[in-house]
C-alpha cells in the first residue's frame, strides 16, 4: 500500500445523524478506523450497531454528516468493501447452491454479462475450504444449519477479496466451536492488512476477539484499543440507560427534516 492510503483511515465518519421512522438511531457519530484493525462494535440492543454498518454501506440514508471509505466516497471504492449482512436478510429458500452464493463474491471482479469461469470457481472453492464447507458446495442453501449459512456468507465475503469488511453479527446463531473458528479466520484476514468492523452483541467475548472496540449507544461512547476502552466507567455509560432528552429532541429534529 502506498503511504497515501496509510494516511487516510479505512473508514471515516463525521457527525453522522441517522433516524428511522422519525426516531434517532445514531446522533452525531464521529469515527476514524485505521487500516489493518479489527474493530468490535459493542452496545446494547437498539444502540444503532447494525444501522451504523448499513449507513456505511449506503443501505440506510443519513440526515446529516458524511462517510468516507478509504478517503473517498463509498461509490468509488465499493468493490473494496465486503459486506456480511445478518442471516435473516435473505431468503434461504432461494434456488441456489452454496457454490452459487460464494461465486457471487467474484462477480465484482468479472464484468457485466461475463460468466464466472474456472478461475472464479477455484477461488470460490478456496474460500469454502477456509470456512470448512467444501463438502457442502453442491447443497441447496436451505439445507444448511444456521451456523453453516453464516459461514457461507463469510466465504462469499472472502471470495470478494475486499480490503474493508463490514460484518453484521456474524456470530448470531453459531455454535461455540464454529465461533472460535470464525474468529481465527477473521484474525488471519486482519493479519493480511485488511480492516474488519464486526458488530458483536456479546460483551464477554468481545474483549478477547477484537483489538479495537467501539462502544456505541446512539453516539460513540468510547473508541480505542480494547484494554483502554474496556473500563467500567465507559461500559456503564454505554449500557446505563439512554439520554432521554437527547433522543426526544433529536426525534423533534428528525420530524422537521422529514
Amino acid at each position: 500500500m502506498s503511504t497515501e492510503s496509510q494516511k487516510c483511515p479505512a473508514l471515516e465518519i463525521h457527525d453522522l445523524i441517522v433516524s428511522y421512522q422519525k426516531k434517532p438511531v445514531l446522533y452525531g457519530v464521529d469515527l476514524a478506523v485505521p487500516e489493518g484493525s479489527m474493530v468490535g462494535v459493542v452496545g446494547p440492543n437498539g444502540a444503532g450497531k447494525s444501522t451504523l454498518i448499513k449507513t456505511v454501506m449506503g443501505l440506510v440514508s443519513h440526515a446529516h454528516g458524511w462517510v468516507k471509505v478509504f478517503g473517498g466516497e463509498l461509490r468509488d471504492s465499493i468493490k473494496r468493501v465486503g459486506y456480511v449482512p445478518q442471516r435473516e436478510s435473505v431468503d434461504w429458500d432461494f434456488p441456489v447452491s452454496v457454490m452459487d452464493v460464494v461465486l457471487m463474491g467474484c462477480y465484482g471482479r468479472s464484468g457485466l454479462i461475463k460468466r464466472p469461469g474456472k478461475m472464479e470457481k477455484e477461488k470460490a472453492m478456496q474460500a469454502l475450504v477456509k470456512v470448512g464447507l467444501e463438502a457442502y458446495s453442491k447443497r441447496q442453501i436451505s439445507n444448511l444449519s444456521g451456523g453453516q449459512q453464516q459461514r457461507v456468507f463469510l466465504a462469499r465475503a472472502l471470495a470478494q477479496e475486499s480490503d474493508l469488511y463490514l460484518m453484521d453479527e456474524p456470530f448470531a446463531g453459531v455454535d461455540a466451536a464454529t465461533e472460535v473458528a470464525i474468529v481465527d479466520l477473521l484474525g488471519q484476514i486482519r493479519d493480511q492488512g485488511k480492516t474488519l468492523i464486526v458488530v458483536h452483541h456479546d460483551l464477554a467475548t468481545a474483549r478477547e476477539y477484537f483489538d479495537m472496540i467501539l462502544l456505541l449507544n446512539m453516539r460513540v461512547v468510547g473508541f480505542g484499543k480494547t484494554n483502554e476502552v474496556f473500563n467500567s466507567e465507559l461500559l456503564q455509560k454505554t449500557y446505563g440507560g439512554r439520554l432521554t432528552v437527547l433522543s426526544e429532541i433529536a426525534g423533534e429534529v428528525a420530524k422537521q427534516e422529514r
Binding site: 454501506m57 449506503g58 468493501v81 435473505v90 432461494f94 462477480y107 460468466r115 464466472p116
Partner: peptide
C-alpha cells in the same frame, strides 16, 4: 440469459449486489 448473473445476485441479496457493483 445475458443478465442471468446480475438478476440472480440482485434477487437473492440486493444489499450484497451493491457491493459487487450491481
Amino acid at each position: 440469459v445475458l443478465f442471468y448473473k446480475e438478476l440472480l445476485v440482485s434477487s437473492f441479496d440486493p444489499n450484497f449486489a451493491a457491493t459487487v457493483g450491481i
